[in-house]
Amino acid sequence: MFSIQPYQNLHKAKWNNVINQSQSATFLFYRDFMEYHSDRFHDNSLLIYENERLQAILPANCVENSIHSHQGLTYGGLIVTENFDSSDYTDMLGYLYSYLKQNNITHLYIKALPEFYISSNQKYVDFKQNEENTIVYKSEKVLAIDYSKPLNIHKSKLKNYRKNETKGFVIEEETDFSLFWNKVLCPRLALKHNTKPVHTLKEMMYLKSKFPNNIKQYNIYFNDEVLAGITIFDKGSIVKSQYGATTDLGEKLRAIEYLFLKLIYKYKDEGKSFFSMGTVTENTELGYNPGLLKQKEELGCSTYYQDFYKIML
């Protein structure tokens, strides 16, 4: 019933068509997004056919004898078309595992979608279902606001928000990421965390050119001086704050807090389902940053989880 092909450039239209047909897919799975950092990863994406009809894709890269649901993406797994019969999941996975073993792959690593990305009517392959050789080797906290519930923003945040309404802040949606990247984000990450953004400025400008309606940059100014910014990835029913950073003055004036609340209200009014603020992961004994967790909870977020699977073939 099933056959598998490694992805090649000639399959781009077919691949993107599956993304168009799948409710659980987001713009991150389009080839134009996946390939902006193709020099960093050995792509080993797969197309899975059922009776010669393309029914699923696996965004993936290869590291030695292991296949990873693409390490350049926040999440992954098998993306299936809406007409795929869910009763065939087990058979499809069995065929996939056999194919990988025949190609000398010993392990398959999957970064599952965070819990709130999957609604009850969506088709999504659960890799831990009935699999003896599958372990959850990591589970990360992901913070998000569920717009179907009343907003639960801390009273101190709302008090400061109301005060700042008359301060004279100006919020602009920008098409150029340069000011935020060079004056706010990169200096802040270097100073506070001795690190750099995952995306370079050049990469962000490229991605913005490919996905102008999905990637947005909002900066906040006071007296013509940039104080903070937030980069939004709009994934349809879910929006995610991909980057958020502030200057020292912006921190003092609570500018990023004000900007977050403005965007939270904006996307609620637009009918989005969730506003995601990403993970609070930290390489410490706790495994997460309690201060960052508190900040996001006070902005109205609840904790969800993203599981990471290791499948021993």
Rank of each mutant, 00 (worst) to 15 (best):
N121D: 15
Q122S: 12
Q122N: 10
Q122G: 01
Q122P: 04
Q122D: 15
K123C: 01
K123A: 01
K123R: 06
Y124M: 04
Y124R: 04
Y124C: 12
Y124T: 11
D126E: 13
D126P: 06
F127H: 13
F127Y: 11
F127A: 09
F127M: 13
K128Y: 01
K128A: 14
K128I: 10
Q129V: 09
N130F: 15
N130L: 12
E131S: 13
E131N: 12
E131Y: 05
E131Q: 14
E131A: 11
E132S: 14
E132K: 02
N133C: 01
N133E: 13
N133S: 10
T134Q: 11
I135W: 07
V136K: 07
V136Y: 00
V136Q: 06
Y137D: 10
Y137V: 02
Y137I: 07
Y137R: 07
Y137N: 12
S139K: 11
S139R: 13
S139T: 15
K141Y: 07
K141D: 00
K141T: 05
V142F: 04
V142Q: 12
V142A: 02
A144P: 06
A144Y: 02
A144E: 08
A144W: 03
A144I: 08
I145H: 06
I145C: 03
I145K: 01
I145R: 03
D146I: 06
D146C: 05
Y147T: 03
Y147L: 01
Y147A: 03
S148F: 08
S148D: 12
K149E: 13
K149R: 11
P150D: 14
L151E: 06
N152K: 13
N152S: 15
N152T: 08
I153V: 11
I153W: 01
I153H: 00
I153A: 02
H154N: 11
H154M: 00
K155V: 14
L158I: 15
L158W: 08
L158C: 03
N160F: 08
N160L: 10
N160R: 06
Y161D: 00
Y161E: 02
Y161S: 00
R162E: 15
K163P: 02
K163Q: 14
N164V: 03
E165L: 14
T166D: 15
T166A: 14
K167E: 10
G168I: 04
V170N: 03
V170L: 04
I171M: 07
E172S: 08
E172T: 10
E173Y: 04
E173V: 05
E173A: 01
E173Q: 12
E174F: 04
E174C: 09
T175Y: 03
D176E: 12
D176V: 02
D176K: 00
F177Q: 02
F177A: 07
L179E: 15
L179M: 08
L179G: 12
L179C: 14
F180W: 01
